[in-house]
Design a protein around this nucleic acid. Structure first.
Length: 579
RNA sequence: CGGGGAGUAGCUCAGCUUGGCUAGAGCGCUGCGUUCGGGACGCAGAGGUCGCAGGUUCAAAUCCUGUCUCCCCGACCA
């Protein structure tokens, strides 16, 4: 391609609504433009990169024995009602009613459709295992799209689904997919980590997340220094804290008047205490059951862990009337004392059980209680009382005695063992060797294609622009003609360009009649990994310069060797990214 | 959904508090000239229903009401 004819609208000034580096650079380098909140148009450079990622993903998936299909983006809501996810997904799933008054959804993912295909077409164990995937647009009506393409409403996802006769077969494919993902991210030039993850809304029994560590990531990954444990925040299990020793004999509980002071901060300020000495009681509704969660004031409840303890039932914060019914007080004054017979379960976090003494709500409007001793003033044991790990890990926590470290990251992929959640609900069954009917065991595996681009930029850029890994760069080589008005320079650049094209190199020729400085700035901004600079002075000596975007030094080579040297460099850059 | 901020030229923004001449700057764009290896300079130009709808007023970018959109923090969420 010739730069002079190519649509690459670079901009000097940073767009006002772009906050993180990848978003800024994607706008500035002319990769994309925003249409509305969370939706972007990919321009030629951005689309080229996406296509390169897609072709790597496709190659590796096919190599792993998966088969590509394409499912509809518009799906009938009935399918989603069968699995219950029309409710679970909630507002995040975009819906519309068509002219026949049918309700449709814009696919946020495709378990339902793929499982219904399996239900219709798979009858025998002889057809299993089967691993199918698609690369297509997904829609999620996010509460708050942000960070450019990292959380957008519309994005490209590679989603695959595998069907198995039993868990052993699932485990095998799961491992193959895991390895395949490693190969894909390595080939894309990403430095990533894998962590244990919670399967969340997807259901199922096991999951790993592939995360690219970087500051602007939305996810938190937690690991031990020796690498023996790594998980995301939703999953990371923490050791119970050692039981605190009381300094002296603790006096009996004391009620204090705290008028209109309900929040943790307000109570702390009023009673001159710290959140870590508070006991927070949250009233949740799990279906018709009301359950209480008790965590330390400075801790956050982890909904995933909480759900696990509840046996997989999703719980939501109870509404005000329900809370008032349990506590007999206005919202803000709940405490763990004397509510055991008013809720179906009380789940107490380990850290609360380890407290020597604390402050908590009195279950009486405008009152709190001090000198509350867990075990003395409210029970830690009982038929409906469970002490468990239900909070988010924080700095200082350990896992198996080892200190936990925290890091932000971008989730670029996740693999799940789904089990039979979907196959049972959608009747995806087969006959085994003995002629008995069984539900397929399923796995599913997702990659956020756009996030690969964004995270590559997040971890590889400098003050001047993007530094692409060669495998996903929009072009492999940029030939810059510094003096396009000089016939000889233009001709040398043109020759190198055509020779590289003939050798199958993805090359862009900057043949614009602009000053050198402008061209160099654009070159750095769009970040093509190899640059061949053709300028008047060097050409007079029979030479051109070759420079890697990621290095500051260039080398001069004789014009006749330019093409072969460039190809060598391209090949060596590519070799560095072979898994 | 709660809190905060912003909508004025293609982009980044000033002007608004205290209403008043033809609504400004830089960048970008067009033409001419000089320049030409790290976002050049000069001259000349094009480009705006000041987000939208009402209202107040002799007069509204500016004040009032409503509304839409966008961004940030939080809650929530692969």
């Amino acid at each position: 391609m010739r730069y002079s004819r190519m649509f690459i609208p670079t901009v000097k000034e940073v767009p006002a609504d772009a906050e993180i580096i990848s978003h800024r650079l994607m706008i500035r380098a002319g990769l994309m433009r925003k249409l509305a909140s969370g939706t972007y148009t990919y321009l030629p450079l951005g689309w080229r990169s996406l296509l390169k990622v897609i072709s790597i993903v496709r190659e590796e998936m096919n190599k792993a024995g998966a088969q590509e299909i394409l499912m509809p983006a518009v799906q009938p809501i009935e399918l989603w009602q069968k699995t219950g996810r029309s409710v679970d997904y909630g507002e995040t799933m975009a819906r519309f009613t068509d002219r026949h008054n049918r309700v449709n959804v814009l696919a946020p993912t495709a378990e339902e459709v793929v499982t219904s295909i399996a239900a219709n077409e798979i009858n025998s164990y002889k057809q299993l295992p089967l691993n199918i995937y698609q690369i297509s647009f997904k829609f999620r009506d996010e509460f708050r799209p942000r960070f450019g393409v990292l959380r957008s409403r519309e994005f490209i996802m590679k989603d695959s689904y595998s069907f198995h006769p039993d868990n052993e077969s699932l485990d095998e494919t799961y491992r193959i997919m895991y390895d395949t993902y490693c190969r894909i991210f390595t080939r894309c030039g990403l430095e990533y980590v894998t962590v244990e993850a919670e399967s969340g809304e997807m259901g199922g029994s096991g999951s790993h997340q592939f995360t690219v560590p970087c500051e602007s990531g939305e996810d938190t990954i937690i690991y031990t220094e020796d690498g023996s444990y790594a998980a995301n925040l939703e999953k990371a299990a923490v050791d119970p804290l050692p039981k605190e020793k009381a300094d002296a004999k603790i006096p009996p509980i004391q009620e204090v008047h705290t008028p209109n002071i309900g929040s943790i901060e307000a109570v702390c300020a009023f009673l001159k205490t710290k959140p870590r000495d508070m006991i927070k009681t949250l009233i949740y509704a799990a279906g018709d059951d009301i359950v209480a969660a008790v965590v330390r004031g400075d801790h956050d409840l982890n909904p995933e862990k909480f759900t696990q303890v509840l046996g997989g039932r999703a719980a939501e914060l109870a509404d005000e009337p329900a809370i008032e019914k349990v506590t007999g007080a206005k919202v803000g004054f709940a405490g763990p004392m004397g509510i055991a017979d008013k809720v179906s379960k009380i789940i107490i976090d380990h850290a609360v059980a380890a407290m020597a003494v604390g402050v908590t709500g009195a279950n009486k409007t405008d009152y709190h209680v001090r000198n509350v001793v867990p075990g003395r003033d409210f029970p830690l044991k009982g038929e409906n009382i469970i002490v468990a790990d239900i909070r988010n890990a924080v700095e200082g926590d350990t896992h198996n005695g080892k200190k936990l470290l925290f890091r932000r990251g971008i989730e670029v992929g996740q693999v799940f063992k789904l089990g039979t959640k979907y196959s049972k609900k959608l009747a995806a069954k087969f006959l085994d060797e003995n002629g008995s009917e069984k539900p397929c065991v399923m796995g599913c595996y997702g990659i956020g294609i756009n996030r690969i681009i964004a995270s590559a930029i997040e971890i590889s850029h400098d003050k001047d622009g993007i530094i692409w890994p060669i495998t996903i760069a929009p072009f492999e080589v940029l030939v810059t003609s510094v003096n396009q008005d000089d016939k000889q320079v233009a001709q040398v650049a043109e020759n190198i360009y055509t020779q590289l094209l003939d050798k199958g190199i993805d090359v862009l020729l900057d043949d614009r009649a602009l000053r050198g400085g402008v061209k160099f700035k654009d070159a750095d901004l769009i970040g093509i990994p190899v640059r061949v600079t053709v300028g008047k002075k060097a050409v007079a000596e029979g030479k051109v310069e070759i420079k890697l975007r990621r290095e500051s030094q260039s080398q001069k080579v004789p014009i006749e060797q330019a093409t072969s040297k460039t190809i060598d460099l391209v090949n060596s850059l590519k070799e560095q990214l072979i898994p």
